[in-house]
Structures are given as C-alpha cells and as structure tokens.
C-alpha cells in the first residue's frame, strides 16, 4: 500500500517518518492501524471538525498519542478508507436539527425544544451562550451537558423555526 499520510510516533510528533500503514476493522468493530508488523487500536480525532471535516484526521492510540495524521482520506487504499469511514461516522455525529419548536428563557437557562433527524429533543443552553456560526453558514449549538446540535441550513427551516432563530443569527 502506498499512501501519503504522514505518520508519527508518540515521541516524535510533527516529524513524519514516511512509513506506510493500513487500517482494518475487526469483527468487534474496533479499528486497528497495522504498521511494521504491529497492530495498534486507534481512535479518531478530527483536527478541523467544522472547517475541514473530511481532512486532517488524527489517528491516536489509547493514550492519545498521535500515530498518523491523514491529510486526505482519498490518499488511502480502499480498505483503509472503508475502515476509516466507520470510525468517522460516530466521531462526527452531532444532533442535526430539522426544526425548532421553541427557545424560551427559564431562570438563567434557555430551553430549546427542537426536532432532530433522530427524533424530538429538549436541551438547555446558558442564557449568554450563543449559537456559533460556522464558515459554511450553518449554526452549531452546544448545550450545558456538552452535546452538540447542528443546523445545516438555517434558511431552509420552516417559517416558525426561522422566526425563533432570527434573534440568534447574523
């Protein structure tokens, strides 16, 4: 296999070694990085989850040491790419909001009642926590538990949702 992703070991981060590797997914769903005859279980960390969600994927071991930085998954072989895809699906997941029922203040909190692709959900943000505008024009909300909610295209929402969201958009 030949691919251009840079790889590191934990002691020499930022110093590409130019070693090749393969990714594979076992029957338990775990993704392994095989290199030089050794296999290491890897986690995925997205370096730019919002500005470059498909690129700069950092593969790390159990101790969070970076094993490889994949600048572009297209440079991987097909099997590795498939294994990586499974890994990224859950890593990238945030609740996709498809509609907003209400966003009302309630004693120091703002209570959001929303529709997501996975079903209705209620969450809270602090009163002075605002939705974060992302470079692609979408909006990201973070609730007080740390869960993330994404509004891909605010203008495509129904009129009621847009009216509620108006105060939170530029």
């Amino acid at each position: 296999m030949s691919q251009q992703a840079s790889t590191h070991n934990s002691d020499a981060a930022f110093q590409p070694e130019g070693l090749s590797f393969r990714l594979r997914r076992d029957s338990a769903g775990t993704v392994w990085l095989d290199r030089n005859g050794t296999s290491t279980r890897v986690h995925l960390h997205l370096c730019f989850p919002w500005t470059e969600p498909q690129r700069f994927l950092s593969l790390r071991d159990e101790d969070k040491n970076e094993l490889a930085l994949i600048k572009d998954p297209d440079e991987l072989d097909a099997d590795s790419r498939a294994a990586l895809e499974k890994l990224t699906e859950e890593s990238r997941f945030v609740f996709p909001i498809t509609g907003i029922e209400s966003a009302d203040p309630d004693f120091e909190l703002r209570v959001w009642k929303v529709r997501t692709q996975g079903g209705p959900r209620q969450f809270q943000t602090k009163l002075d926590d605002w939705p974060r505008p992302l470079p692609d024009g979408s909006l990201l909300l973070r609730d007080i538990s740390g869960d993330l909610y994404h509004i891909k295209d605010p203008d495509a929402l129904d009129p009621k949702s847009r009216r509620i969201l108006w105060a939170f958009m530029d």
Binding site: D26, S27, A28, G29, T30, R41, H43, L46, P49, E90, S91, R92, F93, V94, F95, G146, D147, L148
Partner: peptide, 24 residues
C-alpha cells in the same frame, strides 16, 4: 472500551481477543 466522538460515545464490551464484541 469507550470510543468518544463529538457528541456520541460508543461503549464496547469485549471478551476474548479476536471474538465479536459481547455488547455495545
């Protein structure tokens, strides 16, 4: 094993190495 993501964390309970996960 816990596999944390931005919002979703997956938990995998494993048995013997090489065997399918016991639960997730």
């Amino acid at each position: 094993k816990e596999v944390p993501g931005l919002t979703c964390t997956k938990v995998i309970l494993s048995g013997q190495p090489g065997e399918p996960a016991l639960a997730e």
